[in-house]
Design a binder for these strands. Sequence first.
DNA 1: GTTCTTCTGTATCGATCACTACAGAAAGAG
DNA 2: CTCTTTCTGTAGTGATCGATACAGAAGAAC
Lengths: 198, 198
Amino acid sequence: MARQRAFDRDTALHSAVLAFWRHGYEATSVAELTAAMGIRPPSLYAAFGDKRRLFEEALGLYQETYGAFTARALAEEPTGRQAIERVLREAATEFSAPEHPPGCMVVSAGVNCGPESAEVQELLRRQRERTKAAIQARFDDDAAAGRLPPGTDTAALATYYAAVLQGMSNQARDGASPEALTELAALAMRAWPATAAA
Amino acid sequence: MARQRAFDRDTALHSAVLAFWRHGYEATSVAELTAAMGIRPPSLYAAFGDKRRLFEEALGLYQETYGAFTARALAEEPTGRQAIERVLREAATEFSAPEHPPGCMVVSAGVNCGPESAEVQELLRRQRERTKAAIQARFDDDAAAGRLPPGTDTAALATYYAAVLQGMSNQARDGASPEALTELAALAMRAWPATAAA
DNA sequence: GTTCTTCTGTATCGATCACTACAGAAAGAG
DNA sequence: CTCTTTCTGTAGTGATCGATACAGAAGAAC
């Protein structure tokens, strides 16, 4: 029927992920995006709508790839404690891997945005809250199974570990090594409430 | 001799602190700054040089006022443990105080900057490292005095608490209450190494 | 081949960016 | 008063922002 796209949409989207991850939403210009994606502005707008919708798609791809280790650990580990311990341990490696920008895109890509990108900030904030809620859900399982002391505030515990993850992302952006982040993760696990019986 | 300035320089600088604190360095435009400071661009440039130097001065004022609680706690408390415990406790209140933007300006004002503001990012990064080093120095005192188990990695401990502080700043920016942050701080203190003798 | 549709590249839109030229106004020196 | 100096407001600099108008090119239907 018509002319077909001359570039691979998924490859271009992946390049956009890396660009947004490195400099954040606002600081990544369309000119920088088109250069990274190897296309011209009209192709970008035809394929992705506008900069905001491109970011939304990029964030989705990030979650399914680089950021998927969190959901995987939370789903696969038998206990909340083992789940969060694995999340922190894998984050230490992922956040400082040299193959891609440091830290976590969900944590850092929307920090310094003006009011005109309030939608994007809100999108990221909701994602951070979803992660925190998923962590707390596993802790609630532990509490229900008696693996946490009676009366443990699982919401506060989830907030604590969410903050540690965000702090690890910041440290990685400041150049922390995988080893330093792994030590950090191990220290953070010492805050886990002691159970009376094993 | 000559016409004198029609605005109060310190008051204007304080307004600049709040503007930079809220939206970060790059996302705060000169137009927004002049509006917040109640002056016109030529007055800003005559009094402060340019946007970057205004930010440097604003950061200095922030450190002497809103951000001074950290240095104060580290200087005044008798032990490293008491110092970091007070830093976290006061940060819980300061980061979520309704009188000013949430979180810590040193943590959040330079996150999403492009390469053209590398100097500002580096300025903030160095400040974060100074704070981490100041924390570790107090931990080293504790280690030398036998208040920490032999062989304790004080650098890793300082990295951990620096990350917790940054995570608390992020949580505050996401709307965490002073109470939630205080609970977070208390949990973070549970990672403190147990000493064999008291 | 012709037609239709969609993509691509050039070149540009108005708006905003950090920043400043310029002229008038204000205040002390004489 | 005049002179000198510095500040203030208006207005506008070139550059870049996100986003597009337009025309030509590409490919399938016929």
